[in-house]
Design a protein around this nucleic acid. Structure first.
Length: 1150
RNA sequence: GCCCGGGUGGCGGAAUUGGUAGACGCAGCAGACUCAAAAUCUGCCGUUCGCAAGGAUGUGCUGGUUCGAUUCCAGUCCCGGGCACCA
């Protein structure tokens, strides 16, 4: 009875399919376990051996959990919307629906060959209308939600509208347009269109104008991947930025929760780190700097900061006036009005649990009362000015205080005098609300300022190092910064304009490419250091990005390398604030130096000074703690065909959601895939479809690839439900994915988006959990060697040789690319050794002679073929050669001539020895390297069980490693050996019912323990090796006992299910081994009475002695010392010390 | 540049808390069976000295802690992955 794996595997795969062995129920007494693979995009190339690595790992784990008594959900599906199918359609005219269907069928066939335990009845495809109906539905939920920062969760738009009706947006900042402020009255006065526009600035799915890569020549928008060095990857056409209306997901609102959620999930450190980097949270401060006057090109300039105005309205940028101001405040306090005094009596001494200052100077103003902590000013409108004048002052003052983040509460004299308690109550309430907001703001992206903004009088910078404020030698703002035209001085205008032209001429790619070049221009304007009044020049430079922070930085050259380089390049004097820690040669970004030349921070360690500095800035009202995120809102529309249509119609320019009952919006059939008239997606060409039945025009963008994959794990739970995306009972039962396996390439994209969707669904009450994936395991890539052959460069002239052939002409003439040209051109191939010498310019005479001879030979052959041939002497090109034509880096020349796309009978090989070597380097498995190994071939040769075990045996799942088909023999031999424990070729089944010996039981239970532990911690490679050890030992013991073997069979089922099932049946068992229960490990079989102790002398292992495990130290010492090896090493001396670690080892120190 | 991994035989890799480094497999060498091949089985297999017994040395490199370090600490080099004028 032979191990006929082909027959066995086919038989059981059919059996499992017919009996529905892997069908999973949503109701079970067993505990649930959800094992999920990242579903594949079904590409035309099919699977290669790298793909199933993760699938095998998850399959093993799923089967293991099933044996352990869990109800296991282990589904599979297809991420079937995507660009490649559309690209293919564009090239061949085949509809993506057809090619996708074809590819999926091939994938399923390949997957079934490997024997996975998927419940195919739960298969999902993102391109199915029954599936994307719900993707569209999710989009509508996002569209109909906003993020309530107070409650830190998504809420419905109608609740937001209620708030606006009642109080406007005074208590919540608008995330879309941070400057937008309106009252309830104003809101109610807006027309519907205006209201919808405002709501769009709050929606979690919103539309806005964004830049896309527009390629005029191709008439389409390109993904970032498709753009290389500013031109299209295909064809090399110019690509420009074009503004288009796009959909976005407001993921930035969830930045903090996405960050915090990482604490609750079991992802690898590097994975978490990648997500943290992506979110890019940094803590720092925003600091407002006053500007000194600089004559503007328009002659307006900035208002003179030393200007003094009448009344108690002051503006001052320098200390002299600050002082004057303070004196003025003191005077006012002495001459307070009656109402001021009355209110003061009610506010002083922390009566409202907050410190209130009276007649306090804030940035050039004297406020009647100032509550610095919450940035609130209380003013009592007196009656000693005429009304007109008073209003002007108030207006100006309000404006300026707003600029510094203060709000003003106004009361009249009469109010204060007559309704004192009501006034105090109002203040009290305001204090509470503002404190609450402040708390939230500290924990959310709320406080982010509008990018690139700034106002005329101040420059707001973001810094993580406010402690270095005395080391600021210049400011740098982004060239796109709104302040640039306003502050540029007359003299500097030409230089700035020139620089701006230069920046415009550079594509984003270029700006990013030349990281180290230093460019910039001086604006002629100065900012004022608020602490020492120093004038700081303001520069612009492309190294400061408009999109991050405030688009402006304070440059501290002694502490930041880029700032340092900039200062050196433009000869800006450098202030040293860290003494010896700065050597003048390079910046020192330390946080541990002690500050000098830093006024009130002198002597402080920088790390501690950060908080002190911010406190001071806050107290002065010119700075605040600020959290910044690198993450941007996620673009959610594509100008493509093969994706989910949006359930959106436009009426009068306003986007409206379709009603749920109108879903799905099915993707209409098209026969051309070219872009719409304005570069929209192909859907824009369908004049009929665009007109929506209920009026209005449809959105012609489609959703991106990650739309469908953001929630697919939920659909598996209840895949055929037509009423909801999944029944709440089903999502409550299956809940989080317990184990998610997939590649690192989705670390930030897919994982972040699906975490976002899950959080939104949770907030809206649709599901009961907030994180989709409890544990994530990343499988490594399986690489493959790329074998390179080196060809002597040549040119081939057609016909009479009147012109050299360029590639396009060649293709026209011969119908193939020259590289694939199989005709009789006598190509000359150079062996790796000589090629290496050519590359390193150390080519010797012999090499030259060999090559010259080859050329001569080629020329002779050439006489028989048309055209003219030229060789480029001693210049070579490495070309990937089909790996199956190379053995141990040696080219199989005869096969090459026949089977390679590069070879023909005239091929000439130049080598300095008998064999012809190719180059070899580790790389990706890819069609274009001709190194793809197809799992079907491996399964055909060795069987699915061997393939599964070998993939696991290669090394840890998480690790990347090269594929080597040779090694698979070992695993195959192991399975045959395993089979022979049960059956003999001639005698048939040889399993006996004899009782197992202690030695056999020991082997078995040691294996049970090892397999259980290793499987549980995803150490599948060591588990396979444990099986090998076990089989070797049972073989040595000649053990064929059912008692032992049957348990072993269950153990190995997850790894090699087919052979296990077959032998299970042969042993006469009823039912399937899939439903057996995992053998129970029993310690008692492993208990030993003695141990072969390793004996070390001075830490070096010398011998082993068998000693009883319960022996106590004195006895052990005696035994050890009497040992002859130990005696020899002691050489008559007495040991200094004997270290005895019970059950481990003994070390004698001499 | 920053962040995260990782460096162990000819190769893939093992050593779970500091305790016999190199499990298991591949490749290689020697042998058995065979007319032969395949298949199978046995032995050897880090380097080095030695006929052997046995010794020296050895986990990228340099130091340190320890009775004892692949494992812990400091520094350094190299490789892989991610991010990148991010203030």
């Amino acid at each position: 009875m032979e191990y006929n794996y082909r027959a066995i595997e086919k038989k059981w795969q059919k059996e499992w399919r017919d009996s529905g062995a892997y069908k999973v129920s949503n109701s079970s007494d067993k505990p649930k376990f959800y094992v999920l693979d990242m579903f594949p995009y079904p590409s035309g190339a099919g699977l290669h051996v790298g793909h199933p690595l993760g699938y095998i790992a998850s399959d093993i784990y799923a089967r293991f959990k099933r044996l352990k008594g869990y109800n296991v959900l282990h589904p599979m599906g297809f991420d079937s919307f995507g660009l490649p199918a559309e690209q293919y359609a564009l090239e061949t005219g085949q509809h993506p629906a057809l090619t996708t269907e074809k590819n999926i069928n091939r994938y399923k066939e390949q997957l079934d060959n490997i024997g996975f335990c998927y419940d195919w009845s739960r298969e999902v495809r993102t391109s199915d209308p029954g599936y994307y109906k719900w993707t569209q539905w999710f989009f509508l939920q996002l569209f109909d939600s906003w993020y309530n920062r107070k409650n830190q969760k998504a809420e419905r738009i109608k609740d937001l509208v209620d708030i606006f009706k009642a109080e406007g947006n005074t208590n919540s900042e608008c995330p879309g347009d941070k400057k937008l402020r309106f009252t309830a009255e104003e809101w109610n006065g807006f027309d519907n269109q205006r209201q919808q526009e405002i709501l769009m600035d709050y929606r979690l799915a919103f539309s806005a104008f964004g830049e896309v890569n527009w390629c005029e020549a191709l008439g389409t928008v390109l993904a970032n991947d498709e753009v290389v060095n500013g031109v299209s990857e295909r064809g090399g056409h110019i690509v420009v930025k074009k503004k288009m209306r796009q959909w976005y997901l407001r993921i930035t609102e969830y930045a903090d929760r996405l960050l915090q959620g990482l604490e609750q999930v079991d992802f690898s450190d590097s994975m978490k780190e990648m997500q943290r980097n992506w979110i890019g949270k940094s803590m720092g401060a925003e600091i407002s700097f006053r500007l000194t006057p600089g004559p503007s090109p328009h002659g307006e300039g900035i208002r003179d900061t030393s200007e003094e105005m009448s009344g108690h309205f002051f503006k001052s940028g320098n200390q002299k006036f600050w002082k004057t101001l303070k004196e003025y405040g003191r005077d006012n306090r002495k001459n307070a009005t009656q109402s001021e005094d009355l209110l003061w009596q009610n506010l002083r001494n922390n009566q409202l649990d907050i410190k209130v200052r009276r007649q306090h100077a804030i940035n050039g103003f004297i406020a009647d009362f100032a509550l610095m902590e919450i940035k609130l000013v209380i003013e009592i409108d007196g009656d000693y000015h005429n009304e007109q004048e008073q209003q002007e002052y108030d207006e100006a003052r309000t404006k300026y205080l707003h600029e510094f983040g203060f709000d003003i509460l106004r009361f009249t004299n009469t109010e204060v005098l007559e309704q004192t308690q009501s006034v105090v109550g109002t203040i009290k309430k305001e204090v509470q609300t503002r404190r609450q907001i402040k708390r939230e703001a500290a924990a959310s992206p709320l406080l982010r300022k509008e990018k690139g903004s700034g106002d005329e009088a101040t420059l707001v910078v973001y810094t993580t190092r406010p402690d270095t404020i005395f080391g600021v030698d210049f400011m740098v703002i982004a060239p796109e910064h709104a302040l640039v035209p306003k502050i540029t001085s007359q003299e500097q205008k030409p230089a700035i304009d020139k620089y701006l032209d230069y920046v415009k001429s550079r594509s984003e790619r270029e700006r990013l490419a030349e990281v180290k070049s230093i460019t910039g221009a001086f604006t002629g304007a100065y900012a004022i250091n608020p602490f020492n009044g120093r004038q700081i020049p303001i520069w612009i430079s492309e190294y400061v990005l408009a999109g991050y922070g405030t688009g402006a930085i304070m440059a501290v050259p002694c502490g930041d390398q880029r700032d340092f380089a900039f200062a050196k390049h433009f000869d800006i004097p450098i202030t040293n604030i860290i003494g010896d820690a700065y050597n003048g040669e390079e910046a020192n970004p330390t946080k541990d130096a002690t500050l000098q030349n830093s006024d009130f921070l002198d002597g402080k360690v920088m790390r501690d000074a950060i908080d002190i500095a911010i406190d001071k800035l806050e107290e002065m009202g010119i700075g605040k703690r600020q959290v910044n995120y690198r993450m941007r809102d996620a673009g959610f529309s594509r100008q493509r065909y093969w994706g989910e249509p949006f359930p959106i119609v436009y009426k009068g320019g306003v986007a409206f959601a379709l009603d749920e009952s109108q879903l799905p919006v099915e993707l209409p059939y098209v026969d051309t895939y070219s872009a719409g008239p304005e570069g929209e997606g192909p859907l824009a060409n369908l004049a009929d479809w665009i007109i929506a039945p209920g009026g209005g025009t449809r959105e012609t963008n489609t959703m991106p690839g990650y739309a469908g994959s953001s929630w697919y794990f939920l659909r598996y739970m209840d895949p055929h439900n037509e009423a909801v995306f999944a029944d709440r009972k089903a999502t409550d039962y299956w809940s989080q994915v317990d184990l998610y396996i997939g590649g690192t390439e989705h670390a930030v994209g897919h994982l972040l988006y699906s975490r976002l969707w899950t959080k939104v669904l949770f907030d809206l009450g649709y599901i009961g959990f907030e994180e989709p994936y409890k544990k994530l395991v990343n499988q490594g890539m399986i690489g493959s060697f790329i074998k390179n052959i080196y060809r002597l460069n040549f040119n081939y002239k057609i016909g009479d040789g009147s012109g050299m052939v360029n590639v396009n002409q060649f293709i026209e003439e011969f119908g193939v690319h020259p590289e694939h040209y199989k005709a009789d051109i006598p190509n000359i191939f150079i062996s790796k050794e000589i090629a290496g010498r050519i590359d390193s310019n150390s080519i010797n005479e012999k090499d030259k002679r060999l090559i010259d001879e080859a050329i001569e030979k080629a020329m002779k052959i050439k006489e028989n073929i048309a055209g003219t041939l030229f060789f480029d002497k001693y210049k070579i090109t490495g070309i990937p050669v089909e790996t199956f034509l190379v053995e141990d880096d040696k080219l199989v020349i005869e096969s090459f001539k026949v089977h390679s796309r590069l070879g023909n009978q005239n091929s000439i090989f130049v080598s300095s020895c008998n064999t012809f070597h190719c180059g070899s380097e580790l790389g990706k498995m890819s069609k274009r390297y001709y190194n793809v190994v197809n799992p079907d071939d491996i399964v055909e040769r060795f069987g699915a069980d061997t393939f599964r075990m070998y993939e696991m045996f290669l090394g840890p799942v998480e690790q990347s490693k090269p594929w080597d088909t040779k090694g698979i023999e070992g695993v195959h031999r192991f399975l045959r050996k395993f089979w022979r424990l049960f059956a003999d070729e001639t005698k048939g089944l040889i399993v006996t019912n004899d009782a197992a010996t202690p030695a056999e039981l020991k082997v078995l239970h040691r294996t049970i323990k090892k397999i259980e532990e290793d499987t549980e911690r995803f150490s599948f490679n060591t588990a396979v090796s444990a099986f090998m050890v076990c089989v070797n030992e049972l073989n040595d013991l000649k053990c064929h006992k059912k008692e032992v073997l049957q348990s072993l069979l269950v153990l190995i089922t997850p790894y090699s299910p087919h052979i296990a099932e077959e032998l299970w049946k042969l042993l006469g068992n009823e039912g399937s081994v899939l439903d057996a229960s995992f053998p129970k490990f029993e310690e008692k079989y492993l208990v030993e009475s003695s141990k072969e102790y390793p004996i070390s002398i001075n830490g070096k292992h010398r011998t082993n002695i068998n000693i009883a495990l319960d022996a106590i130290q004195p006895v052990v010492e005696q035994i050890v010392l009497s040992n002859e090896v130990v005696q020899k090493w002691l050489d008559g001396k007495a040991p200094k010390k004997i270290i005895f670690v019970k059950g481990k080892m003994i070390n004698v120190v001499i």
